[in-house]
Amino acid sequence: METLLAIIGGALFAAGIYMVLRRNLIKAVIGIILISNAVNVLFFNLGRLTKANPPLIWEGNTLPVSPFANPLPQALVLTAIVIGFGLLAFALVLAYRSYKELGTVDLDDMKMDPVEVSAEMRAEEEQVNQ
């Protein structure tokens, strides 16, 4: 099982890196999703897989029924999933906004000239002053 999960993690990593290297912004975001899943799978794997009872303390007991699985990797992976979810939601909103504003999702088209920054900030200032 460990070997299988390691291979899955590796495959997800490879696919994710391939996607991140694409020029399309949406594909890059999908690549990030894949890598984050790969890391979670590997985290789970590195915390050692055990075929055992869930780490829950039933009513009346003070300890979980032994043998029980290590709860720490589960807690850590859950935290990582939650954080990953939040960042991903932001990345999607950002991708959507940049598509709306820039009219493209091709990262090669997102080359800015430093002069533009000055011009834009000046325009913004004038807008505020009015």
């Binding site: 991140v20 990345a91 990262l107 997102m110 920054v117 834009e120 900030m121």
Partner: peptide
């Protein structure tokens, strides 16, 4: 502020930093 250049800069910043966190 959503200026165009800001979004362009943010896209690069966000992707590379997400990779670094992972």
């Amino acid at each position: 502020g959503n200026r165009k250049t800001q979004l362009q800069g943010a896209v690069k910043y966000v992707i590379i930093n997400l990779v670094s966190s992972l």
